[in-house]
Write a protein that binds this DNA or RNA. Structure first.
Lengths: 192, 192
DNA sequence: CCTAGAAGTCACCAACTGATGACATGGCCC
DNA sequence: GGGCCATGTCATCAGTTGGTGACTTCTAGG
């Protein structure tokens, strides 16, 4: 599927670990937990599959490690508060989905139905998404606002995953982006 | 998992087909395509697993049949246009998720990551969700409005699936419901 | 009552998965 | 240079899955 990430790597445990983690993250994001086999990850990382179980304990532990060492919501929270909606909407509706920013969403969406992965996702999506978002929002109804934001972000990603944007042309995507931005900004600072 | 749906059924092909379809729909909705085995469905339907392949051709064909014979968006489109937001938001945020109305969403969310099921989902979600919704909305920007509605509906369902509502209490859920209703109604008839 | 064929069951297959223990190999320190 | 241990590979296992063909059993029609 992918070219090897670290072409030169000679018996360097740390580098091998990283290569496995990166390969796993990409696989989990683009195919989901169930559809990703240890042999796939190993092949991408240029490593024998047995090594993964030895390094991480097993597939589930690898998945947890991928979640905890990966990107989180902080990226979206950086920057001007007033342009939050526009920044996020741009990513959700316009930017190509292969972006790394998407990986967290994709992993959650594509793996949430696997019982083995569900608990890790639930925990991580709370700790590395909801909680920071809620704190960033502040105020009494931060929890509800965070949920509303999450609904739109998740739903927009889900729709792109299912339909791969076949249904909307560039113009419509632009309109979608603007509408999403308004909704998001409203959830951030408007009346709930 | 579930009690047999048709306790008395003696060599009645049509009834057996229906029993299999119902069992499959529930399984696919609550566990997803990958996690559901033909043996699980057969067990729920009180039938031998071999019968499923013989009746439907295979798991993929069964899945397609479940989608096409199941509920669609029409249920949400019935009733007063002005109360659309409230009705849908009520379902999304308040009503128990075991409701049959949810099954279409759950099937899509929980099975979208399976390549075998993805194409059927894409097609069905277009034919039995987007298209009717777009027609119902009407107007030049119906496609964009349909997408916006879909984002919120999908996202809200996704969040409930992941977090099972642990994060919100009754009061917050009520606030969430009202906010969702406003957003949905705005997408239906407000300025996009 | 009896048989033909539908309805349902059983045993089994090949493919795949995650995992494990035995083995090979290369780099580092003395 | 030589041995040791971390690093990596190989063969293989047990479990599960979807699928298939041969078999049994029950019902309907004569």
């Amino acid at each position: 599927m992918s070219p090897p990430l670290s072409p030169v790597r000679t018996r360097n445990a740390a580098a091998t670990r990283t290569a496995i983690l990166e390969a796993a993250r990409r696989r989990f994001a683009h195919e989901g937990y169930d559809q990703t086999g240890l042999r796939d990850i190993a092949s991408d990382a240029g490593v024998d599959a047995a090594l993964i179980s030895r390094y991480f304990g097993g597939k589930e532990e690898l998945f947890e490690e991928v979640l905890t060492c990966g990107p989180n919501i902080a990226e979206f929270l950086d920057g001007d508060r007033d342009s939050f909606g526009e920044r996020v909407a741009q990513m959700l509706a316009v930017e190509p989905m292969r972006e790394e920013k998407f990986e967290l969403f994709l992993i959650m969406l594509r793996s949430a139905s696997s019982p083995k992965a569900a608990e890790a996702i639930r925990r991580h999506s709370h700790d590395a998404f909801y909680q920071p978002l809620e704190t960033w929002l502040g105020g009494d109804d931060a929890a509800v606002r965070a949920r509303l934001l999450s609904c739109v972000m998740m739903g927009a990603t889900m729709n792109r995953v299912i339909h791969e944007d076949y249904l909307l042309d560039g113009q419509q995507r632009q309109e979608l982006c603007e509408a999403l931005a308004r909704t998001l900004d409203n959830y951030v600072s408007g009346p709930v």
